[in-house]
Amino acid sequence: MSKVIVSNLMTVDGFVAGPGGDVMSLPFDDSFSTHNLGLLLDAGTLLYGATTYAGMRDYWPAVAEDDSQPEVERAIARRSAEIDKLVVSDSLTGDDTGPWAETTTILRRDEAHERIAELRRDGKDDILTFGSITLVNDLLAAGLVDEMQVLVGAGVLLDGVPAFSQPPAQAFTLVDARKLRGSNTALLRYAFED
């Protein structure tokens, strides 16, 4: 059985992006990349919505070959290229997968819940999603998330994209809370009860 794990950075006031969806306004630090690399290495599949997928697809391939980038970023780029990716989208096609064509499958929205439930039931490796807040809220409402890792960064935006747009179908149970090493970022890990 596989778990669906969500990992998202948000500000203290609960935003996962700034005005206009600007994720670069979030309080990133080195611990964020180190944490995400660990999750990537343990997962078997990345799950994205169309917007986040396009951003990742356009950003990471160049980082893998850029010697000026920190090794943790290059490792994320390499793993992102090789890992299987599922993208929930009614607008993207195979032509939109670019350098990740061989490792990307596009799921239409009307088939996503059934396919993700099947992967949770029959899979052996975890399914990981970063960003993709519209998809995350949909999966939470459908009861298809097993673990949520909320990284709370030391920043306040006062406006932007909120982490939650609808209530989840299941109750949150806190299973871990700690400060990431060498960071002002807190990790809150939640499991979901039926």
Rank of each mutant, 00 (worst) to 15 (best):
S2E: 11
I5T: 12
V6H: 08
V6D: 04
S7L: 04
L9I: 13
M10N: 10
T11R: 05
F15G: 00
V16C: 07
D22N: 11
V23Y: 12
F32D: 03
H35N: 04
L41F: 14
L41P: 05
A43T: 07
A43I: 01
L47H: 15
L47M: 12
T51F: 03
G55M: 06
D58V: 11
W60N: 04
A64D: 01
S68D: 14
S68M: 07
Q69Y: 04
P70N: 06
E71M: 12
V72Y: 15
E73V: 05
R74V: 00
A75F: 08
A77C: 06
A81F: 14
D90P: 05
S91W: 10
L92P: 00
T93N: 02
T93H: 09
D96P: 02
G98Q: 07
T103L: 04
T103Q: 03
R108M: 03
A117R: 15
R120E: 06
R120W: 07
R120V: 00
D122W: 15
D122C: 04
G123C: 06
G123P: 08
D125Y: 14
T129P: 06
T134R: 09
D138R: 07
G143N: 12
L151H: 13
L151E: 11
A154V: 07
A154C: 06
L157W: 13
L158F: 12
G160E: 09
G160Q: 14
A163M: 13
S165A: 05
S165Q: 12
P168K: 12
A169S: 09
F172K: 04
T173P: 01
L174Y: 15
R178N: 02
R181V: 06
N184S: 06
L188T: 09
R189A: 07
E193I: 08
